[in-house]
């Protein structure tokens, strides 16, 4: 078996300005935040992000590292809209290719299957098409013959293009050194497809275990990320903080509220950055512990 274990820092060493990065999770759930924080520490720019967006998108866009985002929303779940994302959008600071949640799924699926597009009704008649003129439609090729459906003979459908990623990163509860990983929280979301769509495929996990031993830590059907999908794994304790990563931890609602409140004024944001985002990952976790003991 290969040995794929590395560190988050070494993963991020591979990232270059201009790359397209897919980030797993959904909203403020199981986001690869340790990886995002490491990106924040680096001198990178003009990234394209593909995400079911949460604070990953808000933080990276706010830090000026992002030229373009492909998403259907940027939410904190218990707070409707990430405040840094709102600010960046209202400042006109970032390009947005806004797609239906389901189209994002199809774009990643198409890339995973190495087909140029997949068809959908989603997007027809909406601004998803008019706001992204490069996104186009296809006539139903089955207008006659044995596979023709009378109601769809004249149907035009959205042709969702494959969303090819340079890098994908997901965060899981457990990974083994060979690159298998286990998601114990309720929803695997589209993490498997992010990995499938990417050239370089990274998994961070709360804990790394010996190759082949995942089944002793949970039901094998939760080991939905297998090593054919991965290149590197790295340990990241509280690597999704402050987003949810059950059963290791729920969303840190108090800290998320503090994050939101800290974006209200430039002074408050400078203080938040100085306290939490300017040191190492160890410094971050220590600062979070200290903040929590003050509450």
């Amino acid at each position: 078996m290969p040995t794929k274990e590395t560190t988050v820092a070494e993963m991020v060493d591979e990232i270059e300005s201009g790359m397209t990065i897919g980030l797993g999770g959904w909203g403020s759930r199981r986001k690869p935040m340790a990886f995002v924080r490491e990106l924040l520490r680096r001198d990178l720019k003009n990234l394209t992000l593909v995400s079911y967006g949460g604070p990953d998108v808000g933080l990276l866009v706010n830090a000026g590292k992002v030229a373009k985002v492909i998403c259907g929303f940027v939410t904190l779940d218990s707070v409707a809209l990430d405040p840094l994302w709102r600010k960046a959008r209202q400042d006109g600071a970032v390009e947005l290719m806004e797609v239906d949640e389901g189209l994002l799924y199809l774009g990643l699926q198409a890339a995973s299957w190495r087909v140029p597009f997949l068809p959908a009704r989603a997007g027809l008649g909406s601004a998803v098409l008019s706001n992204t003129p490069e996104l186009t439609t296809i006539e139903n090729p089955y207008s006659s013959g044995p596979f023709a459906q009378p109601e769809d003979t004249d149907a035009t459908l959205v042709a969702m293009p494959a969303l090819l990623l340079d890098v994908a990163v997901i965060h899981t509860n457990l990974a083994d050194t060979a690159g298998n990983a286990m998601i114990l929280s309720p929803d695997p979301f589209f993490d498997e497809l992010f990995l499938g769509a990417a050239t370089r495929r990274f998994v961070t996990a709360e804990k790394i275990v010996d190759a082949g031993t995942l089944s002793s830590h949970g039901p094998i059907e939760r080991a939905t990320i297998h090593r054919l999908l991965t290149d590197r794994v790295a340990p990241a304790r509280r690597g999704a903080h402050f987003t949810a990563n059950a059963p290791d931890y729920e969303r840190d609602e108090a800290f998320q509220r503090h994050y939101v409140a800290s974006t209200k004024t430039p002074e408050d944001w400078a203080a938040f950055q100085a306290r939490f985002l300017e040191g190492s990952e160890t410094d971050y976790l220590t600062a979070v512990d200290a903040w929590e003991s003050e509450q």
Binding site: G72, F73, T75, E98, V99, L124, A127, V128
Partner: peptide, 8 residues
């Protein structure tokens, strides 16, 4: 918040 799943 974003288009979410509304188009589909």
């Amino acid at each position: 918040v974003g288009v979410r799943g509304a188009p589909g």
